[in-house]
């Protein structure tokens, strides 16, 4: 009789509470050719300790080792990611309102300053005077007729780019901001996988 096969796929990410007990089923999706998957899923892997801080990487090898302790004859086939990032979620500490307002004003003033610097940098005033003369044939040192719509347009353009003008979505596609957030998170995850997982690096010169 051929030995039973277990297909095991590590989850990309697992979010847990402090002190929680993680089972094999939490860490991986399991399918088996006999009915052992449910039993394996219940196997206890690890209890979160305070010393784990907020991140932990569990390598697939650890899970395989655990399963083999109980079921040495099982043929384990692993698919997909080779590790799971365990994120330990402590009760969220609220960002204080004062702190938030300060950041808001910093960004408000800073972006205003940045646009003024940009205008001076590219001689926007002269360009606007020139557009005014081009259209009307009159010299006007302060072409506000052009500049006030321009200023409002600046805001519209930025909002348009980030697609927040309409709260309802145009379509299913994510906005550039969401894609950017996702990419950043992926980079962080990759870093964690490489650096938090002690098994992924080995230094033979270590004493």
């Amino acid at each position: 009789m051929a030995s039973a096969v277990l297909y095991l796929r590590m989850r990309q990410k697992l979010k847990v509470k402090p002190q929680q007990l993680i089972t094999v089923g939490d860490l991986a999706q399991l399918i088996s050719s006999d009915n052992t998957a449910g039993h394996i899923a219940e196997m206890e892997m690890y209890r979160i300790k305070p010393s784990d801080k907020n991140l932990l990487v569990v390598d697939v090898m650890k899970v395989v080792e655990k399963i083999q302790e109980h079921l040495p004859a099982l043929d384990i086939q692993t698919i997909g990611p080779a590790q799971t990032i365990v994120e330990i979620q402590y009760p969220k500490r609220r960002v204080s309102t004062i702190y938030f307002i300060l950041i808001w004003f910093l960004l408000f003033i800073g972006s205003g300053l940045a646009i003024m610097n940009f205008h001076e940098d590219v001689s926007m005033q002269e360009v606007h005077q020139r557009i005014y003369r081009l259209i009307t044939g009159i010299d006007n040192p302060t072409p506000l007729m052009l500049q006030i719509p321009y200023s409002l347009g600046l805001g519209i353009g930025m909002v348009l780019f980030f697609n927040h003008l309409f709260r309802k979505r145009f379509n299913e596609e994510p906005s550039p901001l969401e894609v950017e957030m996702f990419n950043y998170q992926q980079d962080l995850d990759l870093y964690i996988i490489m650096h938090e997982n002690k098994e992924s690096e080995k230094n033979l010169n270590d004493k």
Binding site: I115, I135, P143, Y150, L154
Partner: peptide, 17 residues
């Protein structure tokens, strides 16, 4: 100049964003 200014602004806004 009003539509022209608005168009200029939106374009620069898109660039900035």
């Amino acid at each position: 100049l009003i539509p022209i200014g608005l168009a200029c602004g939106i374009f620069i806004g898109l660039l900035a964003a």
